[in-house]
């Protein structure tokens, strides 16, 4: 009877190729969790797009004005929130005012506002300025038609804010155009930079339509290859991609570029220039917190692929 037949023991090749799914999931969970309990500063080589991003952001005149198009939600919190936090820290420390809007997702404006609140509270604790809504940044909210909105920003930026209300601290809603952020703004070229923090296809929407303002993107990891192409062609002045980009920025905020000292980061492109960092301030965030765990999970995947391929190779050799 079939029941009596003993199943043939699995060969090594078969064993290597048939690890049970729960085991793989379990190992991944453990490997993604344990490193989070250890705070380790890992060596890092900052890549050019991140260095350019930091350098261009630092070169923005103190007190100038920029636009942040925030199109991420917590679905990519692991990457986008770290990016947004790093960007906000740089802007707040340089007292740069910004217009906030979203063309990607109805949840995005609220998520961005929550992040701004968290970062300004953290900065205040360390002697930073309290960034006030309406005074230091103005929120235009969500626009479902990204295409038309970006064309309008390029053509007549004030028209995009027309009719929009924002909530100043300590008073009721006011017209967004009355915000000090819009003072002296006639066209989009009066803004020094257009920052896009996104995890969706709005990167292309903006790139296709915005011609009158320099741009820098902060994108999720999966979007890095596509956006590297835009960075290489000069359409983007800088690019921060994924958690690696965040870790780069956090390192750059600590030591700057071409400044002698421990952990020095040098760049041939900025030879002869010294771009400062903020040593001693809170520069680390999600990038530093997650980078060690990312090492282990990537290593796990590499091992899993090698094990699977080894199993296949042994099977083939046995069959031959």
């Amino acid at each position: 009877m079939a029941m009596d037949q003993q199943a043939a023991p699995l060969t090594l090749a078969e064993k290597l190729q048939s690890l049970p799914k729960p085991m793989i999931y379990g190992i991944l969970l453990v490997v993604a969790t344990i490193p989070l309990f250890f705070s380790v500063k890992l060596p890092n080589k900052c890549i050019d797009p991140s260095i350019d991003f930091y350098a261009q952001a630092m070169k923005l005149p103190d007190g100038s004005k920029v636009i942040i198009c925030s199109d991420w939600t917590n679905s990519t919190r692991g990457e986008s929130k770290g990016e947004m936090e790093a960007l906000l820290r740089i802007l707040m420390r340089k007292n740069i005012k910004f217009v906030l809007l979203s063309i990607g997702d109805p949840q995005a404006p609220q998520v961005a506002k929550d992040t701004i609140r968290e970062v300004t509270s953290a900065e205040e604790l360390h002697g930073g300025k309290h960034y006030k809504e309406f005074e230091d940044y103005v929120n235009l909210g969500y626009f479902p038609s990204g295409e038309g909105t970006i064309v309008s920003i390029n053509n007549n930026v004030r028209s995009v804010a027309q009719g929009k209300k924002d909530f100043p601290e300590g008073s009721g809603p006011k017209d967004a155009l009355q915000s000090p952020v819009f003072e002296g703004i006639k066209s989009v070229s009066d803004f020094k930079m257009f920052f896009l923090v996104t995890a969706s296809s709005t990167n292309r929407t903006v790139l296709e339509r915005l011609t009158n303002c320099p741009m820098m993107y902060m994108v999720s990891g999966v979007m890095v290859p596509e956006n590297t192409s835009y960075y290489a062609s000069g359409q983007l002045k800088g690019l921060c991609g994924g958690v690696k980009g965040v870790y780069d920025l956090e390192n750059l905020m600590e030591v700057g570029i071409n400044n002698p000292g421990p952990g020095q980061i040098t760049s041939d492109k900025y030879k002869g220039e010294s771009i400062p960092g903020w040593p001693g301030k809170t520069n680390t965030g999600k990038g530093t917190a997650y980078y060690l765990a990312l090492h282990f999970t990537l290593a796990l995947l590499i091992i899993a692929v090698i094990v699977g391929n080894l199993g296949m190779y042994l099977s083939k050799r046995r069959a031959n």
């Binding site: 991944l28 969970l29 993604a32 969790t33 989070l36 679905s75 990519t76 919190r77 692991g78 990457e79 929130k81 999720s220 990891g221 999966v222 979007m223 890095v224 290859p225 991609g241 994924g242 958690v243 690696k244 999600k286 917190a289 997650y290 765990a293 990312l294 999970t297 990537l298 995947l301």
Partner: peptide, 16 residues
């Protein structure tokens, strides 16, 4: 490679 980085980071973030 980039996709893997992103997906693992999202998992790491949840575990965090």
């Amino acid at each position: 490679g980039s996709t893997v980085m992103m997906r693992f980071t999202l998992l790491i973030d949840r575990m965090y």
